[in-house]
């Protein structure tokens, strides 16, 4: 399989299941059978790594390396190096990551949801036109500008996906969500009003002085 086909959501899913390290090995740039598959793969893995780091995973757990099918020795070397690094960090959530188990698995689930989401997938797909020919307005992005756009989605979508996951389990209040997710409550308030504006949640009930919100199931 071409490394360009490795789905970022799958990567997060694997860590969620307890994987300690993942190395994606692609061909050298210029050698790709599908022309730019490996370039795409590297870009996707870079973004995935940014997201996983943001939610609390040691970023060394996800690596992208290159070698050709004829280079057995190089391959062995890459693998043993990576293996050694993972051994140094230890098992996932066991102290080698900013967030520890079992919280890290919840974070990985969030990351999976973000990476499976339309926003980030679409913008990742726009990477080549953004960097080369420009967006809908003809503005060409620098890599840095593109990273900022991606980081914007990473920061906000992680919080939104965590909120939506909680809401899928039942009605929640702003205060309750903030406490459960350790997101500042004023940010939760803004997200909740935004989700309501979009028709994705609605008021469930007001109990005492606390409004609760419930999710509106979306079609498709």
């Amino acid at each position: 399989m071409c490394t360009g086909r490795v789905d970022p959501a799958m990567v997060a899913g694997a860590f969620k299941k307890g994987l300690d390290g993942l190395m994606v090995v692609g061909c050298y740039f210029g050698d790709c059978h599908y022309i730019t598959g490996n370039v795409q793969a590297k870009a996707k893995m870079d973004i995935t790594r940014r997201l996983l780091k943001h939610v609390g995973l040691n970023q060394d757990r996800l690596a992208f390396r290159q070698c050709s099918s004829g280079e057995a020795a190089v391959f062995v070397n890459l693998v043993s190096e990576f293996d050694q690094r993972i051994r140094e960090i230890g098992p996932i959530g066991g102290g080698g990551d900013p967030v520890e188990a079992p919280d890290i698995f919840r974070k990985m689930e969030t990351a999976e949801a973000v990476l499976a989401g339309e926003k980030i997938r679409w913008v990742i797909g726009k990477r080549t036109p953004f960097l080369e020919s420009g967006n809908m307005y003809g503005e060409v992005f620098t890599q840095h500008e593109f990273n900022r756009a991606i980081d914007m989605i990473i920061v906000e979508e992680t919080e939104v996906q965590e909120i939506l996951r909680e809401l899928r389990e039942g009605a929640r209040s702003v205060k309750g969500l903030a406490q459960a997710l350790t997101i500042p409550s004023e940010r939760v308030f803004k997200y909740i009003t935004a989700l309501k504006r979009k028709g994705m949640i609605k008021l469930d009930k007001v109990s005492d002085r606390t409004p609760y919100f419930q999710i509106i199931p979306q079609e498709g």
Binding site: A178, E186, K190
Partner: peptide
Amino acid sequence: TDGRVVSPLDGEI
């Protein structure tokens, strides 16, 4: 907020 008075700090009334 659909006309409801709530605190933007924590959404409480």
